[in-house]
Computed example of a mutant assay.
Amino acid sequence: MTGQRSDARRNYTHILAVAEAEVAAQGAQASLERIARIAGVGSATVRRHFPTRKALLEAVFKQRIHALCDRAHTLSGEYDSRSALVEWLRELLAYALAARGLADVLSYQPLQDEAAQDSCAAAIGAAGDLLLRRALDDRTVRADLTIDDLLTVIVGIALATENYTDPAMQADRAFRLTVAGLGANGT
């Protein structure tokens, strides 16, 4: 965004604010045309700033993703590596439930295939991998776990429960059942 005219920066900021509200209300399938209409700009202006739906969603979630990554670094200093990993996964799931559309951003493709290293999925993968590696080194989780496995489960839980009357309750139950299977001996 550096080097842009001041009106272009204002448009970007305003479009992003409108997009955040629309994605919160409608999820990842929020209409780009409706976002443009509410923002008072043309569809071409939205697409100039955000050439793809994924680019728009990445921008909407970027700040919170950075906070989750910072949280992983904080938790990596915790004594119990398994508890740190589980707590971070729980926080990621809670955010994925609260921020409709985040699960869609994280589920576009496996992390090792992620082309953009500064994407939400790559950042979340790196942060989670830090916690997972520590838990693996401490032998507090199954040796065959990968961060892709864990993120697939979190995304799956978020997507499977988002339309329940009480998605948080259903997601918590699925999460607890999943965590029981993370043990070093597979239990």
Results as ranks from 00 to 15, higher is better:
38 I>N: 06
20 E>P: 02
108 Y>K: 03
181 G>R: 10
2 T>W: 13
97 L>V: 00
152 T>D: 14
7 D>S: 13
172 D>I: 00
172 D>Q: 15
62 K>S: 06
48 R>G: 08
127 A>W: 02
134 R>A: 13
133 R>N: 11
134 R>M: 02
177 L>P: 09
9 R>Y: 04
186 G>F: 07
143 A>G: 11
130 L>F: 05
42 G>M: 05
2 T>E: 11
155 V>F: 09
161 T>E: 00
183 G>E: 13
61 F>Q: 02
83 S>K: 15
179 V>T: 12
187 T>C: 13
5 R>M: 12
107 S>F: 10
178 T>N: 04
35 I>N: 01
174 A>K: 08
176 R>L: 11
163 N>E: 10
94 A>W: 09
46 V>C: 04
24 A>P: 01
141 V>D: 06
75 L>W: 01
12 Y>I: 01
116 A>Y: 13
33 E>K: 07
13 T>I: 05
76 S>Q: 12
23 V>H: 03
73 H>I: 04
33 E>F: 10
143 A>L: 06
46 V>W: 00
123 A>Y: 03
101 G>K: 03
76 S>E: 07
138 D>P: 02
95 Y>W: 13
40 G>N: 05
151 L>V: 05
77 G>P: 07
76 S>W: 06
97 L>I: 10
56 L>D: 01
37 R>G: 03
10 R>Y: 14
114 E>S: 03
124 I>T: 10
54 K>G: 09
38 I>W: 00
50 F>T: 00
114 E>Y: 03
173 R>D: 13
163 N>W: 05
129 D>P: 01
147 I>E: 02
179 V>C: 11
116 A>H: 11
161 T>N: 01
82 R>T: 06
66 H>T: 14
180 A>F: 05
50 F>N: 01
115 A>F: 08
105 V>T: 14
5 R>L: 10
119 S>I: 01
118 D>S: 15
149 D>N: 14
93 L>H: 01
120 C>A: 13
26 Q>R: 15
85 L>W: 00
143 A>N: 07
34 R>I: 10
124 I>H: 07
39 A>E: 03
5 R>N: 10
154 I>H: 07
68 L>R: 00
123 A>Q: 15
116 A>V: 14
132 L>N: 03
20 E>S: 14
20 E>C: 15
64 R>T: 07
130 L>G: 04
25 A>L: 08
150 L>Y: 00
171 A>T: 02
22 E>D: 04
143 A>K: 12
78 E>Y: 11
139 R>K: 15
62 K>L: 10
80 D>E: 13
140 T>C: 09
47 R>W: 01
171 A>W: 00
156 G>E: 01
53 R>D: 03
133 R>I: 06
101 G>F: 00
117 Q>I: 13
7 D>C: 07
169 M>I: 04
70 D>V: 09
74 T>C: 06
13 T>V: 10
89 L>T: 08
160 A>Y: 12
13 T>F: 05
82 R>K: 10
93 L>M: 08
63 Q>T: 11
186 G>P: 08
44 A>P: 02
116 A>P: 03
114 E>C: 07
125 G>L: 04
101 G>L: 03
130 L>P: 04
34 R>G: 07
53 R>P: 02
68 L>P: 00
179 V>A: 04
145 L>C: 14
58 E>H: 05
112 Q>M: 07
80 D>P: 08
